[in-house]
Design a protein around this nucleic acid. Sequence first.
RNA 1: GGGUCCGUAGCUCAGUCCGGUAGAGCAAGCGGCUCUUAACCGCUUGGUCCAGGGUUCGAAUCCCUGCGGGCCCGCCA
Length: 490
Amino acid sequence: MENDLVRQRRRKLEEWASQGHPRYPYAYADRTPVSRVREAAARLEPQGVDRSRHFRVAGRLSLLRRVGRNTFAPLRDASGVIQIHFQSESMGTEDYDRITGLLDGGDIVGVEGFASRSRTGEPSLLASSLELLSKALLPPPEKWHGIKDPEVRMRKRHVDLFTSEEALQRFAARSALTQALRMELARREFLEVETPVLGRVASGAAARPFLSRYHYLDEDFRLRISLELPLKRLLVGGFERVFEIGKVFRNEDMDSMHSPEFTLLELYWAYVDYEDVRKLVEDLLHHLSIRAQEILPGERTDTLVQSFTPPFRQVDFGEALERESGIPGILDLPVEELRALARKYGARITDTTPAGTCLDKLFGHFVEPKLMEPTFVYDHPASTTPLAKAHRSKPGRVERHELYYRGMELTNAYSELNDPEDQEQRFRTQAEAQGNEDTTYAYDADFVEALRYGMPPAGGLGIGLDRLWMILLGSESIKDVILFPPTRSK
RNA sequence: GGGUCCGUAGCUCAGUCCGGUAGAGCAAGCGGCUCUUAACCGCUUGGUCCAGGGUUCGAAUCCCUGCGGGCCCGCCA
C-alpha cells in the first residue's frame, strides 16, 4: 500500500532529523558537477583513490545496490551521473550503517568524498560524509521501465523528467533551439517585443478564442489567437524588424499536431515582400536544423539538415490543387460547386461556408499529404487570407506562402496588406461570409485605424514553434515537446 | 464529435477469450554477502482489479452507463 511506502520513508526522515540534522537544509555549498568528478576519477587505476582532494557533489540518488559492506548508488545532477561508493571500511561501521540505512532511491543528497574507481573500473565518488538535502517521500517509478503510461508522463512531467534521460534531453534541446532562434533573429537585427495576451478582440486568425474577465476594466476579454495585428501596429510606429515568441490560445480540439495553447513566432520586416521572407525561412530552418544536428547528432538529424538545405521546392497553390484533384479551373468554380466538392471529400461544410474555406479543405485533402519534403505552397486564393496583400500579377490571389513538411504546415508568410480600405473590406467580407465571430477573422477597428496612419510595405512570417520543434527533435506528438500539455480533470 | 483499443500492487505487466480463494518482476521490510552495474540468494509485507449499475449461487472476467487515456478519422490556422 502506498501509505506503507510513504510511512517508511517518513520514518527514515524523522530518524535522520532526530540525529540532529535539518530535515530540509537551505543549501549545499562548494559543489562540483558530477561530470567533473567523473573525469577526475576516470584518470585513476581501477580500485584507485585520490585522497589529495575532496569533492562535494549533490543530486538525486536513483537506486541503491547493497553488496556486503559496500553500497553503490548512481547520483545524477544536471551534468551527468556518477556512482557513489559508500564503504564501511572507509566510513566506519557505525556511520556506514546509520547513513545507508536511511537512504532510499529518489533521495536528493549532498555527498563529500574522494574521486575513485571501483574494482570493475566504474568512476566513483568514495563517500566520506553525506547530507540528506530532500527526502523522497514518494517512491520513484520502477528503475528499469520508468513510467510508460503517456497519461502519467504528462500529468507528472516532473517524474517523467527525472526518470527518463530521453525526456530531459528533449526538453533541454527545445530550450537550446529556442535560444538559437532568438540569437539568429537578434543577429539579423530583429527586436524582440511582447504584446498583450488579453484583448477585447482576438483576431489575426480564424479560431474560437478563450474568454476571460478583466475585473479592473470591468469588461470581458479574450486570449489572443495570433500575434499579428499588434506587431503590425509596431511597424506603423516605426519598428522595422520586430518579432515576438509567445503563447497563443485557440479553443479547439487537441491532437498529435494541435495544442489549444501553443507557442508562436511571428516576425514583421518593413520594406521587404514575401520573396525576401521566403529566403529568410530557408535560412532559418537550415540554421536550426544544423543546431539540432549539433545538439542531437545522428542519422535522423543528418537527414534533417539535408532536407532543409535551400532552396526548398515551390508549388503554386492553384496548380498543385488542379493537378492533384484532376479538376482544371478549380479555383474559379462557383462557391456552390466548391461546397459540394468539399463535402464529397468529408469536410464539414455549411451553406454559408466561404469559397476560401472550401479550397483550403480541398487542398488539405488532395495536396497536403503529398508534401513530404520541405515545400513552399504559394499564392493562395485571396478568399483564404484576409491579411495578405493582393498578388501583384495574379488576379484573385494573394502574395502568401506556407512551408509544408511531412504533410504538416510549418510556416506561413505574406506580403502584408497595408491598404486600410482594402483591409476593412476584407474584414467585412469575412464577417458576412460566416456571420460567426468566433471562427472567422474578427474585425479589429484599432488595427484598421492604425493602417490609416500608414504602414510601410512589409513581409511577415508566422511559425508554430511546437511543430517546428517536433520536427527537429523527432517527436511524433506535439505533447512530447510541451512540458505540461492540458489534461482533463480526474 | 465518430470509430477503436486500453485502465489490475508505488512502477512494469500476466490473468479477461472459456465466470469459481488476486498473480509475477521491480520497489519496500527482515536476514545473508566487503566492488556492484537492472547485483545476487532466502523469507515477508503490499490490492477501491478506474467508478456505478445489471446478469449470476458466484464477476477483475459477461452486459450497460460514466470517467480518464492511446491510436485513427472528422474539426480548427
